[in-house]
């Protein structure tokens, strides 16, 4: 069975990626692997889903009727590396990621996780922007 991987963060861009991931998985008859990783190097990481939010995510995934799995690696590595790992391991057909809106200067300063992902990951990558009203 083919696999669609989604890089998920609890932001509008992550929601958008998840929506498109679900659509793509239905279209391809594939199973869905949702990845939400944390470097785990700070006491607080608000992008790491847990507690009520994690339960809500599981409920939401169950309602899609797809075969789904949530992976939450915490190994001190960047999201790009974790996603590349999961894609390689599952032999993913497609990776869906959310893109944040950023100016050229911001990009210069902060680098870009999306760029790292494009360079690291071997399978096709679908980049989704968050809906404009929520951005």
């Amino acid at each position: 069975m083919s696999v669609v991987v989604v890089g998920y963060v609890p932001h509008p861009r992550g929601r958008a990626a998840l929506e498109h991931g679900v659509l793509e998985a239905h279209r391809r008859g594939a199973s869905l692997v949702v990845v939400n990783s944390s470097r785990g190097d700070a006491l607080v990481d608000e992008e790491f889903v847990r507690g009520d939010r994690l339960r809500a995510l599981h409920d939401e995934l169950a309602a899609t009727g797809l075969t789904t799995e949530v992976r939450q690696p915490v190994r001190g590595r960047d999201a790009a590396e974790e996603l590349a790992d999961v894609c390689r391991e599952t032999g993913a057909e497609l990776l869906v990621i959310g893109l944040r809106k950023r100016s050229a200067v911001g990009k210069l300063l902060m680098g870009s996780a999306a760029q790292r992902i494009l360079l690291d990951v071997d399978c096709p990558v679908l980049g989704v922007k968050s809906p404009p009203r929520e951005a």
């Binding site: 944390s38 006491l43 608000e46 847990r50 507690g51 915490v74 001190g76």
Partner: peptide
């Protein structure tokens, strides 16, 4: 320590 805690 690796990992983070949940903020309520």
């Amino acid at each position: 320590r690796k990992g983070s805690v949940q903020v309520i």
